[in-house]
Amino acid sequence: MVKKSKNLLIISAVVLVVVIFTVSLFSSMTNDAEASNFAMGSPVDIKVYGEKDGDALCGYAIERIKFIDNVYLSHTISSSAVSTLNRDGKLTADKWLGDYLTECVELSAKSDSFTLFSGDMKDLWQIENGGYVPTDSEIADLLQKLENTELIINSNEMTLQNGKIDLGALGKGTACGEAIDYLKKQNVEKALVTVGGSIGAIGDESFSIGVRNPFGGQNDYFAILNATNCFVSTSGDYEKFFERDGIRYSHIFDATTGKPVQNDITSVTVVAESGTVSDFLSTAIFAEGIENGIKLADEFGAEVIIVKKDKSVLVSKGLENKLTINDNSFSISVIE
């Protein structure tokens, strides 16, 4: 009798230990992790689903984003590549930066209204400082200077002449892309990266992405987009702007006029296969206007959602079935 109960005791102890062990292992394996932080002047949010080391992966992805910001793109850190280039006029770039700047130059060449050298324009219009409307002659001088601004890339030697480089228009998309690349290398199967208004998604299942309502607050969205394995970036005139005499001057510049863009667009959302491209296009299409903007999107095989100031919305054919509108004051038409 004693032997029987002893055996039972051992068996049940083992069973219970196995159960507890399996349950805790299972719960740590299907851990959905999330981390939030701040970089490039915007909130950063990383979600990694179903990975054992989810928290660590989120952390490293954030570190990657901060690295890109601190070492390459930042304006506020004086040792960053951009700051150095702007201050000294030259820089020896590493492979990553060399390839990246080459890509930026190629992208910029596709749109006349877009420029990498918006630094002087931003300074003149004091977008960060309350805003200032320059005189026509100041603008003419600016345009003249822009004409002579050039970034010369000679293998890994960068030379910047006559201007200031500003990669803010594509930087967040790039950061998203870098974080996603990192997570993919770690074999993460499902993740969502948000850097400011740029979003990157990995996974077979689609994510629900809210499309920001340009007329509402930070968390207002007028439609939900089903996004799978892609990047989504938005540029809007509501992000950074100042108003003077009833005119809104946004932070998106038209390089051909030297002024903030004035057209009937209030926001452009782009769905593309690369973070940098999606962010670049969201700015470039906005600056180019609807007709040229749509052509530009086609060139890259990207899809767009363009919201006009009258609340009418133009949507690429490929997105028609992926968009669910939840605010009827917006009227949707599909771009043929």
Binding site: K47, L192, F207, S208, I209, G210, R212, P214, E239
Partner: peptide
């Protein structure tokens, strides 16, 4: 239902 995973813009 249907709270989005993230919001663009």
């Amino acid at each position: 239902g249907n709270l989005p995973d993230a919001i663009t813009g």
